[in-house]
Amino acid sequence: MISFFYSCKKVEKSKPENWTPLFNGKDLTGWTAKINGYELGNNYNNTFRVENGALIVSYDSYDSFTNEFGHLFYETPFSNYKLRLEYRFVGEQVEGGESWAKKNSGIMIHCQSPESMLINQGFPISLEVQLLGGINENEPRPSGNLCTPGTHVIMNNELITEHCIQADCKTYYDEEWITVEVIVNNDSITHFIDGKSVISYSKPTIGGEFLDSTSEEVQAKEGQPLTGGYISLQSESHPIEFRNIEILELK
């Protein structure tokens, strides 16, 4: 006689995650530009705009790039969350851009408020999820790195004071859409590129390079932990497009 036993244990279904769009695909509602050399809200040369459902960084109105490093800030600060979006580099770098800025952009998290930036301040105090594209064949240029303008972090129980730390990620050479996700869980942060974890770090604090280019009020916060802040998208002289920008706040 063959007996069959069936478990009556109820299988719990995972709850759907309620992601919130930060970009409506139509205009820059909720976003404000801060471009080096210009007042907050001056979207110089229409650098940031929306076309075909994507938030794009364009330089077609520039004669040349002369340090107009820019950041497009979302209106709300966040602390614990998952952030994800898609990006792709397109076209050619504008004349005058730095060689290192070719196919180079970023997502800045834990930013100082845009109102606290000086007119002539190229980069906010923040943690940068650096986005890079390949330029020369067989020359590695991984995406998803960490750069630290005015910040320090802990990695493998050591204080990291380098400005940029390379991620464990492949190089993307073409103009395909790439998915990036950032998980901020209290004081631990991980970057993902196309679903792969590429770098992790923790306990960010204010300090180091770029701090001296900020206001005295911000400089006075040296050594303080960064437990949250604003999110911004970067413009560094190479055209880039973003879409499907959304966030899931964590408890």
Rank of each mutant, 00 (worst) to 15 (best):
C169P: 14
G223P: 11
I199Q: 11
S215L: 04
Y59L: 07
W31I: 08
E86M: 01
N52E: 08
S237E: 01
G96M: 04
I240Y: 15
Q219M: 12
I119S: 02
V153M: 13
T214M: 15
R243V: 00
P114I: 03
G207L: 07
N42V: 13
I109E: 00
V129W: 02
S64H: 12
Y62D: 03
T32N: 08
S105R: 08
V218K: 15
E128A: 11
Y230C: 04
V153E: 14
F89D: 03
T214F: 14
G208V: 13
Y173K: 11
G96Q: 09
Y201G: 02
L159M: 14
I178M: 04
H110K: 15
N145H: 10
C169I: 01
G208D: 07
E51V: 07
I154M: 09
N18Y: 10
C164M: 04
E95H: 13
Y172P: 00
L28E: 11
E115R: 06
F69K: 14
R243C: 01
F192C: 03
T148D: 10
S215R: 13
E75M: 04
A101I: 05
T66M: 03
N45H: 11
S58I: 03
S232H: 05
G207A: 08
P140M: 12
E181T: 01
N120I: 07
F5Q: 06
S64L: 05
T148E: 15
R141Q: 10
Y74T: 00
T214G: 14
W19G: 06
I125L: 12
F123Y: 10
G229H: 08
N67K: 12
V11R: 10
A167S: 15
G53N: 03
A167Q: 11
C8A: 06
K251I: 00
I125V: 15
S143F: 01
T29P: 00
Y172F: 15
F192I: 01
K26M: 06
K26D: 01
T47W: 07
F4L: 13
K10F: 02
K34Y: 02
P140S: 13
R84W: 00
E158R: 15
K13C: 07
D194G: 08
R141F: 03
L159G: 09
E181K: 12
E158F: 08
S235R: 09
E39M: 10
I125C: 11
S7A: 02
M117W: 01
E241S: 04
G150T: 11
T179G: 08
Y44Q: 12
V94R: 13
N42C: 04
P21V: 02
L146D: 04
T205W: 12
F23W: 12
I56P: 03
P140I: 09
G223R: 14
S105N: 09
I199G: 10
Q112M: 13
N80Q: 07
P124Y: 01
S3A: 11
E246Y: 00
S188M: 06
L22K: 09
S126E: 06
G70E: 05
S58Y: 01
Y74G: 00
P77G: 07
E162G: 03
W19Q: 06
H238N: 09
M155E: 04
I165F: 00
S58W: 00
N18C: 12
G150K: 10
H163I: 15
V198C: 14
E98L: 08
R88W: 00
G91L: 00
T76F: 08
E95Q: 11
W177V: 04
E139W: 09
K221E: 12
